[in-house]
Simulated scan of single mutants.
Amino acid sequence: MDRLSDTNANPRLSAEVLERALHATDIMVVLTDPHLEDNPIIWVNDYFCQFTGYGRDEVLGRNCRFLQGDDRDQPAIRRLRRAIDAGESVNVHIRNYRKDGSPFDNDLYVSPVRETPSDLDGPIRYFIGVQNDSTARIRAEAEVADRTREVHETAENERERFGMDLHDGLGQELAGVGLLLKALVGRLEDEGSASGALAGRVLDLVEEALSSARDMARGLNPVDASPYGLGDALRTLCDRVAESQPDIEVRARVEPIPFDDRREARHLYRIAQEALSNAVKHAEASQVLVTLHRTGGSVHLEVRDDGAGVPEELTEVGDAVPVQDRAELARRGMGLYGMRYRADLIGAALTVRRDDGGGTVVRCVVPDAASGPRAGHRARSGERE
Rank of each mutant, 00 (worst) to 15 (best):
A155F: 02
I138G: 03
V177C: 12
E141A: 03
L179S: 13
V144P: 00
M164H: 12
R139C: 06
G196Q: 00
S195G: 10
A142Y: 01
A194W: 08
E160S: 14
L166G: 08
A175H: 08
E153I: 11
S193D: 09
H152S: 15
R161A: 15
A140V: 05
A155L: 11
V144C: 02
A145K: 12
E191I: 06
N157L: 08
S195A: 12
L188N: 03
L170E: 04
T148I: 01
A145L: 10
G196K: 00
V144A: 07
G169A: 09
D190C: 04
M164W: 10
G196A: 01
R159E: 09
G196V: 01
S195E: 11
N157D: 08
L181I: 05
T154E: 06
V144K: 03
R147Q: 10
L188I: 01
L170A: 09
V185I: 02
D168S: 09
L166W: 06
N157G: 04
D165V: 13
T148N: 12
E160Q: 14
R161H: 13
E150Q: 12
R159Y: 01
I138D: 06
G178A: 11
G186H: 05
H152Q: 14
L181G: 01
G171N: 04
E160I: 12
A155W: 07
N157C: 01
G171L: 04
E150C: 00
G196S: 01
I138M: 04
I138L: 06
H152L: 14
E191V: 09
V144W: 05
E189I: 02
E141W: 01
E173C: 05
R149L: 04
D146V: 04
I138V: 09
E189G: 01
E191A: 15
H152V: 11
N157T: 04
V177I: 13
E156F: 04
T154A: 08
T154R: 15
D168N: 11
S195I: 03
H152W: 13
D168K: 08
E153V: 07
M164E: 14
L184Q: 10
L184S: 13
Q172Y: 10
V151C: 05
M164S: 14
G192Y: 06
Q172P: 00
G163E: 05
R159Q: 11
D190H: 12
A136C: 00
R159G: 02
E143N: 02
D168R: 12
I138Q: 11
R149E: 08
A145N: 03
V177L: 15
L180H: 15
R149T: 05
L180F: 06
A142H: 08
G178C: 03
V185G: 01
A183L: 10
R187V: 05
R147I: 09
K182P: 00
G169V: 07
A136S: 12
V185C: 02
V185D: 01
R187C: 02
E160L: 12
E150N: 08
E173T: 13
A175M: 04
G176K: 07
E141C: 00
G169M: 10
T148V: 00
V185H: 03
H167R: 15
S193N: 04
R137P: 00
